[in-house]
């Protein structure tokens, strides 16, 4: 039953000397009377493999019980913990403090309603966007017989749809978007990506004309200024700029614009 090791296991990283990291947080709790926006600094010992999830929880447990932030999966898959990390929107749970240097500045995502400190209401924004874009499969038949074989789909197409379906609605693309900062009704790259996703899906009964009706104006695809920040910050590396350009080209071709 013995067999030789296929490859030599990687040795664990050598121990590094401990050092301090300083985390500056933009704090404000609109629920609390007298609260004003301010920066607050916390210092803590940096540990090997420390993420912002670990660091912020340590601050809350040992230094400041009132600090607000949102984590759920702490594994980079649920999208709860997006915040502005040293000026750039990203997922805090999978960001190592070591990758940021000794001074870290954290702020809540802009555009979204602030709950308190680093916690923002992305859920409300995303639901409104989904309702506005009717972001669900519009089935061709109302009732399907679920005891029969499922409808077939080419394996490549399923994979292509999944590529766009990987969006976790974290809000990074919206927070990084110039248009979203200026137009409250802009559906953002997250919304346009959904249109691209449902357009690709043969189970959705909607036609191109239906989709164009939803996004064929400045709150939709013509609001995009092609700054490409959405594409750069997407934690799932979704091809957002490509999808937006594609939807826009399709629309121009269909005689809109």
């Amino acid at each position: 039953m013995t067999e030789p090791a296929a490859t030599a296991p990687r040795a664990p990283a050598p121990e590094k000397p401990q050092h301090k990291v300083r985390i500056n947080v933009l704090r404000y709790n609109p629920q609390e009377r007298g609260s004003v926006p301010r920066m607050q600094a916390y210092e803590l010992e940096e540990a090997e493999g420390m993420t912002l999830f670990i660091a912020l929880n340590e601050i809350r447990e040992k230094q400041d019980a009132s600090l607000h932030f949102d984590f759920v999966c702490r594994a980079g898959i649920c999208g709860s913990c997006a915040m502005v990390i040293n000026g750039r929107p990203g997922l805090a749970c999978r960001t190592l403090t070591q990758s940021l240097g000794p001074e870290i500045t954290l702020a809540p995502l802009p555009v979204f309603e602030l709950i308190a400190d680093l916690s923002v209401n992305t859920g409300k924004w995303m639901r409104a966007m989904s309702e506005r874009l009717q972001a669900w499969v519009h089935m061709k038949e109302q009732e399907i017989d679920i005891s029969r074989l499922e409808q077939r789909m080419e394996p490549e197409l399923a994979q292509k749809i999944y590529e766009l379906d990987r969006c976790i609605e974290c809000g990074c693309c919206v927070a990084a978007c110039g248009t979203a900062r200026m137009r409250q009704d802009f559906v953002g790259a997250v919304g346009l990506n959904k249109i691209a996703r449902f357009r690709l899906d043969p189970r959705d009964a909607r036609t191109d004309a239906d989709f164009y009706e939803l996004v064929g104006d400045d709150s939709g695809v013509f609001g995009c200024m092609s700054l490409l920040a959405c594409h750069d910050v997407c934690p799932k590396s979704l091809p957002l700029a490509t999808q937006i350009a594609f939807v826009r080209r399709k629309m121009a071709g269909a005689g809109w614009n």
């Binding site: 499969v137 679920i146 029969r148 409808q151 789909m153 399923a158 994979q159 379906d165 959705d204």
Partner: peptide, 19 residues
């Protein structure tokens, strides 16, 4: 369970498919 997979298939889950 098979009905659940098929219902979700109709609702848009991009299940990986057999080649």
């Amino acid at each position: 369970a098979p009905k659940a997979v098929r219902e979700l298939a109709a609702w848009g889950v991009p299940w990986s498919r057999v080649r």
